[in-house]
Structure formats: C-alpha cells, structure tokens
Design a protein around this nucleic acid. Structure first.
Lengths: 153, 153
DNA sequence: TTGATATCATTTGCATACGAATGAATTTCC
DNA sequence: GGAAATTCATTCGTATGCAAATGATATCAA
C-alpha cells in the first residue's frame, strides 16, 4: 500500500457526510476575497481616494447635480454611508453642497471644478484598475464572468 | 520630441473613447454590489452572526485550535480585523483563548462546546445562503461563475 | 384644512477592513 | 552568544456599511 492509499483511507474514515461544508468554496467567501483583491489593486493605483469616493465622483460626472440620497441610490449606498463619503469629498473641495430651492429637505451635490478635473484625470487609471482586476481571465472569460456577475448583483 | 510629447501621445493612443467610462459596468463596482447582496441574504438567514464571524467559526471547525493570526490567514483577514472578530466571539462564549505553551507570542483560539453546537446548527442555513445567492444563475452558470470567480480571488 | 404618511437627511451604535506604529517573543545568522 | 531580522499580537486612526431612531419637510387623503 502506498502513500496515496493511506491518505485516501484517512480521508474516507474521517466523517462520511458532516465535513463536506467547505468555507473556501462558498460563493460569499470567494466574493469577499475577490472584492478585497480589487480594493487592493485600486489602492495601488489611486492612493488618495477610495473606491466609494471615486464612484461618487464618477457618477456625479455622469448625471450632474443630484440630491445626496439620489446619488446614494445610483452608487448603491444607503443614506448614512453616502453622507460620510460626501462629507469627506466636500472637506477636500471636490464637491459642493447646496439646498434645493423648492424642496428644502434635499441636499444637492455637485462637482467643483477641482472635482471635475480630478475625476477626468483618474478615469484612465480606473480603466487600468479594471484591466488589472480582470487580468487572471482571458478575454472570453471576462465577457462570461462580467455577464454572470451582473446577474448576481 | 520631449517627455511631455511622449506622454501625450501615449494617453491619446491608449483609448479612443475616453468619454464612455461607465461606472456600473466596471467589475469593481459590480463586485461590491454582488457582495452587498450576499451579505444581505446572509443577514436574512443568520441574524445574530456576521459573515466574518461565521467564517471564523467554520474554519475553526475545520482545523481545530490555531493561533489568531493563522486563523486570520485562513479566512483572509488581517491581524487587526481578526482580533475584533475573535474578541466578539469570545464575549459571546463561542470561542476560548489560551496562550501557546512554547511560543508565548501566540494566542490560541478554539471553539467552545457552545461554539461547536452553533456552527453545526448554522451550516445548513449557510448552504441555503449559498443557494439563494446563486439563485439567479442556472446550474451550468453556477459552475462557470464559481470557477472564474475563484480565479479572481 | 388637517391629520396620517412618506421622503430626505442626520445621528448613533456596532462591525468589518486595513495601514502604520508599537511591543513582546522567537528565529536567523554571523 | 548576541545583534538583527522576523513573527505574533495589540492599538490607533480612518473609512465603509447598515440598522434604528429622530427631526424636518412634503405629500396625500379624509
């Protein structure tokens, strides 16, 4: 009997059914790791802005002035989270806030000139971040993966 | 030709379509949303434990007693993060801590009886969480997606 | 019109997540 | 043997992320 047989016997003897939950195969666990890796790649390219901060600027570039809550909806952040992100962008002079004339509940957010410059300058880096994040996959795999991931999100 | 010209040429040559950067198509943004959705599904099934806490218990069940740092490596958490997770599990009586006899730097972590009961009880729910997270995909798509996601993580 | 509801924003509390600095113990290597 | 480097853990600071409670304003409906 060789080493492989011994290993097989050990594994078989362990637990017939109970041990077949493998954390490292669960989609949630892998999703968390993939996200961590992406954030790490992001930080390596854009050190002075976080992905959520970048998302806020990029979306403001797309849609122009919006309310804080609406912006949160567009970038998948709840009201409490988006407030913190916008506060920090405002402190750095990248966005400016104003009250809606008619509906006085709404807090309007817009890019400053500096914020617009920043996001235009960062977008090429963001393209590279996407490229590097997907680098382990072939072009065909990227297409497949992106489609399926979008279905899950 | 000077350096500035080179830089300009590179930037111009890079991507013809500089304007259509769509945040909602970037893998990092979708990854973040997919992760959010998973965490939400998790919370709906297991309300009194977070995914990282569950991961710690599940991994301790697999490997038995380990050092805090080693456990962190196994579940992809840095030292600072794993400390918080373990502290909270300890406060709830699900894990117990002890000092390594020989290497006095190491803090050993192990399941308590209560912790073992908890993780055994939760694993069926975790299977359901995985199933529900992947529900938008067909069986074939699940196989493809999991394989590609693992490559990215 | 006014009372009930809904929406927008803020605040608080808790839980990751990670970089950086620190201290304690161990290992490496000359 | 002993200095230097490494490893393990802790602490601090900053930044998401979300639930729940609150306040202000707006809308709906009786």
């Amino acid at each position: 009997m060789n080493g492989e047989d011994n290993l097989l016997k050990l594994v078989e003897a362990e637990e017939p059914e109970e041990h077949d939950y493998l954390l490292q195969e669960q989609v949630g666990f892998i999703l968390r790791k993939a996200h961590q890796r992406h954030v790490s790649i992001f930080a390596a390219h854009i050190g002075d802005l976080t992905p959520p901060q970048f998302a806020a600027l990029a979306k403001l570039r797309d849609v122009g002035e919006t309310s804080q809550n609406q912006l949160g909806t567009l970038i998948a952040m709840d009201a409490a989270t988006v407030k913190g992100v916008i506060d920090r962008l405002k402190a750095r002079g990248l966005v400016e806030l104003s009250r809606h004339e008619v509906d006085k509940r709404r807090l309007l957010v817009n890019l400053t000139a500096e914020g617009r410059d920043a996001i235009e300058r960062l977008i090429p880096l963001a393209r590279e971040i996407t490229r590097e994040t997907l680098a382990p996959l072939s072009a065909k795999e990227i297409a497949t993966f992106t489609k399926l991931l979008a279905k899950l999100a």
